[in-house]
């Protein structure tokens, strides 16, 4: 349910945010490893890590000069936080174990992120939110 709200918040600023990302040759989330190749057993762990990634490393570096965009980013970030709280309950009950493969995949995402300066990496990550949502919803 919160994902639907994130999706509508993102759709409102998708064109604006993606237009601020001129780099076609690099993706944070989808290359070289596609999220769609993640094993279902690793899915919970990757989602958990990615939610922390967006909270800690993405939203706070996406301030823009456009107050409407900033409000939508706040809306998305607060929805993320709300879902993250629920995920933490899974994580506490050990239902969200991280295998070797998911740890490697997430490491690659951080390498992609650190390959750019912080603002570019954050804006690119925000612009790829539909990649994350498509994957999360695919086998929801």
């Amino acid at each position: 349910t919160g994902v639907t709200e994130i999706r509508s918040g993102f759709n409102a600023i998708k064109a604006n945010i993606q237009a601020r990302d001129p780099i076609r040759t690099l993706s944070i989330l989808s290359h070289p490893h596609s999220l769609h190749k993640v094993k279902s057993s690793d899915k919970c762990c990757i989602i958990h890590k990615l939610f922390n990634f967006y909270m800690d490393k993405v939203f706070k570096h996406c301030q823009t000069e456009d107050s409407y965009v900033n409000r939508k980013i706040s809306s998305i970030a607060n929805s993320f936080l709300s879902i993250k709280r629920k995920l933490e309950q899974c994580h506490k009950q050990n239902k969200c174990l991280c295998g070797q493969e998911s740890t490697e995949k997430f490491k690659q995402i951080l390498v992609n992120y650190e390959g750019l300066n912080i603002t570019s990496a954050a804006i690119k990550s925000l612009g790829e939110l539909d990649i994350l949502l498509d994957w999360m919803e695919k086998s929801h």
Binding site: D56, F59, K60, S67, N70, S74, A77, N78, F80, L81
Partner: peptide, 19 residues
């Protein structure tokens, strides 16, 4: 202005104007 839980915990307690 408003401030969500995200702003308090991750964005230095920033406030956001409602234009």
């Amino acid at each position: 202005e408003f401030q969500g839980e995200y702003e308090r915990e991750y964005a230095n307690e920033s406030w956001i104007p409602i234009c």
